[in-house]
């Protein structure tokens, strides 16, 4: 029985998950994305170095995967900003950088158009915002 594949699978799954959530949160809340991008690159390189010098094969594998994921996350922070510009991810109206994007790009929106269930047919840009699930308190405020 070789558990190295299992270690790699768990590491890959968890780092993708955490990275996926963290990239969105960090991009939405930082004014200058170059700073978290640089931090991710430095952390990624340090992690790869640790993978290089450790002798334990499981740890080597986990650190190798984590390091590359951090390096990719740096690029994902930049890609996330592009998603904001296209309206594919919601802009944060409290972030000055996003406020600027909202003013410059007509496609940008504060709405999360993915926050709903699929309905099985194509949806027009006008209909899309109406399908979003609203938080309970928002609904109760309206009624």
């Amino acid at each position: 029985m070789n558990t190295l594949g299992l270690v790699a699978a768990i590491t890959a799954f968890l780092t993708i998950w955490i990275g996926h959530v963290a990239v969105r949160k960090i991009e939405a809340n930082t004014r200058v994305i170059a700073i978290p991008m640089l931090v991710a690159i430095v952390l990624g390189l340090i992690t790869e170095y640790c993978s290089l010098i450790t002798d334990n094969r499981s740890l080597k594998t986990a650190l190798g995967i984590l390091g590359i994921t951090l390096l990719w996350d740096a690029f994902e922070i930049y890609r996330q900003q592009n998603r904001i510009k296209h309206g594919h991810a919601p802009a944060n109206p409290n972030n000055p950088r996003h406020v600027k994007i909202l003013a410059e790009y007509s496609t940008a929106t504060t709405l999360n158009l993915l926050k709903r269930d699929p309905i099985g047919r194509q949806v027009s840009p006008e209909e899309a915002p109406k399908l979003i699930h609203h938080e309970e308190h928002e609904v109760s405020q309206r009624s």
Binding site: M1, N2, T3, L4, G5, L6, V7, A8, A9, I10, A12, F13, I16, W17, R57, T61, I65
Partner: peptide, 23 residues
């Protein structure tokens, strides 16, 4: 299945393919 692959790097590749499907 990756648990039954004896070669380390191959077991890792199989494991990661599995993780990609789950994700």
């Amino acid at each position: 299945a990756s648990l039954f692959v004896q070669t380390d790097w191959l077991s890792v590749i199989v494991g990661v393919i599995g993780a990609t499907f789950v994700w």
